[in-house]
Design a protein around this nucleic acid. Structure first.
Length: 467
RNA sequence: GGUCCCAUCGUCUAGCGGUUAGGACACCGGCCUUUCACGUCGGUAACAGGGGUUCAAGUCCCCUUGGGAUCACCA
């Protein structure tokens, strides 16, 4: 058991989106690989924007992906006394100070600076204040160094450094007494003993301020790894307008969690020429250093390909269970009768890219009277077709066995006897059994449907085709 | 605008000074085939530009260009 401690710290203001899922995955993977601890922390200091629904949605997303945590979830809203304590300590040590500038004043200064082409950073008005101003509202600012350099060696991006003169005195406590993000993150990561912080690279600019805070607090600075963003097809930040961004939306669109995991990890990380990784392989092969430095475009086609792979190679029993809700959406309940679902899945899984397609393909098995596709009938049913089907049905009724191979033999014998080719009868049989022109092999379908049901569907079609 | 980051096929990437620049998705063909798929074989397609360093640069350095992130009493 190593001492490595990692964390995923989402703010509950929405669903778990694919970008967040990926950073959670990287944290989880590293923790599992190194035998470390994975902590889940909910960053809900913004009480107004945080909701319980979001917390639930995030946990649900993590569970669906199979990213289990060892500690937590911890809520920052439970830690306010701890943050206050640290603010007071910094204040007492002269490492922070009270600032009485109103937000209106600051806003005005910021706009003026911007208008004059200067940097909009705090001018330090209250930094020199010697005494408190009783009765006046204040925020607490961290007293940042005026010169020098703050640098760190990012596990993904390499050495990064900032001039301290570029940083200003950030607010660590609001006028209402609540702490701000950059401060609580540091206090929590320090108190939870986080050794490696893996997060989105939109945080690199926050890192130097946080390092300064660790130092002021007298806590060891963790290692940082900033993972690149996920982009949409037009290379801008991935958003709803590029399609779904919520992890759970992908489940609803028929994706398997293992496909999502495999896709997410390969977006920005690779291991030679390998594309397919099981969870175990990932834990064995993943290294944070091999994560790429540049942003990547989310590509649904590749996700779809991976999903197809996992459906194709998946366990029919498990797929059957996962398929139930999708079938229910289509008004199908296999427990009410019909062939066993795993058997049905077996005939469909190599041609479905999503669970939606799998469900669509399964419906006809459970529909006693499939709706005939008129267009297909017009194209494939000829005057002589009904007669062919009758011959086939008769032969089928009396066949010794009724399985894929036996049915195939009967088909061939009937065709030979009739002097026709498979193509002259196959499409019509498919319509008779399934209603349309797309389905698994008709031998397979017959075996799954069984002799009685197959013949019943054939008779019904013969009646229809002779009319 | 300041600061920071990034840059190999359309997309995800391999490459860690010497390669016919490899793989995967997508796309286009052939094969397989009773449908749709699967599978299989093959093909199109990239080092952003310019300077250096070096016998040798996609690989190292600098500049340009182009993207992105961030500059809140949000996280």
């Amino acid at each position: 058991m190593s001492q490595v401690r990692l964390r995923f710290a989402p703010s509950p203001t929405g669903y778990l989106h694919v970008g967040g899922a990926r950073t959670a995955l990287f944290n989880w993977l590293l923790a599992r690989k190194l035998g470390g601890t994975f902590v889940l922390r909910i960053e809900d200091t913004d009480v107004a924007r945080s909701t319980q629904e979001s917390v639930d949605a995030i946990l649900q997303g993590m569970e669906w992906l199979g990213l289990d945590w060892d500690e937590g979830p911890f809520y920052q809203s439970d830690n306010f006394p701890l943050y206050k304590e640290h603010v007071d300590r910094l204040l007492a040590e002269g490492k922070a100070y009270k600032c009485y500038c109103s937000s209106e004043e600051l806003e005005a200064k910021r706009e003026k600076a911007l208008a004059e082409g200067r940097k909009p950073k705090y001018d330090g008005t209250c930094r020199k204040l010697e005494t408190d101003v009783p009765g006046k509202p204040f925020v607490v600012r961290f007293k940042a160094p005026l010169d020098g350099v703050t640098a760190f060696d990012d596990l993904i991006k390499g050495p990064i450094s900032f001039e301290n003169s570029e940083l200003d005195d950030l607010i660590i406590q609001r006028s209402d007494g609540t702490p701000t993000y950059n401060f609580v993150v540091v206090v929590d990561d320090a108190s939870m003993g986080i050794t490696t912080v893996i997060r989105g690279d939109d945080h690199v600019n926050n890192t130097p301020r946080q390092i300064l805070l660790y130092q002021a607090l007298g806590s060891p600075v963790p290692r940082f790894a900033h993972v690149p963003m996920i982009l949409g097809s037009d290379k801008t930040r991935l958003s709803k307008r590029h399609g779904a961004t919520s992890v759970m939306a992908y489940r609803d669109m028929g994706f398997l969690p293992e496909a999502m995991i495999n896709y997410l990890v390969r977006l920005g990380w690779s291991h030679g020429d390998e594309e397919i990784f099981s969870r175990e392989e990932l834990i064995e092969k993943f290294t944070i250093e091999a994560v790429g430095r540049s942003a990547g475009v989310f590509n649904t086609d590749k996700l779809l390909w991976l999903n197809a792979h996992y459906i194709k190679s998946g366990d029919p029993e498990r797929l059957a269970t996962l398929l139930l809700p999708f079938l229910a959406d289509r008004g199908v309940d296999p427990s009410m009768g019909g062939p066993a679902l795993p058997t049905v899945v077996r005939t469909l899984q190599e041609r479905a890219k999503t669970m939606l397609e799998l469900a669509d393909g399964a419906v006809f098995y459970y529909t006693p009277l499939p709706l005939f596709d008129d267009e297909a009938i017009a194209k494939h049913v000829k005057p002589e077709t009904a007669g062919y089907l009758q011959s086939l049905a008769t032969a089928l009724e009396t066949a010794a066995d009724f399985n894929h191979d036996a049915v195939e033999v009967v088909f061939k014998e009937v065709c030979a006897g009739l002097g026709i080719k498979m193509g002259q009868i196959g499409p019509a049989v498919r319509i008779a059994l399934c209603g349309g022109t797309v389905s698994p092999s008709i031998y397979e379908v017959m075996e799954v449907l069984g002799r009685d049901e197959s013949c019943r569907r054939l008779s019904r079609a013969i009646a229809r085709f002779s009319a």
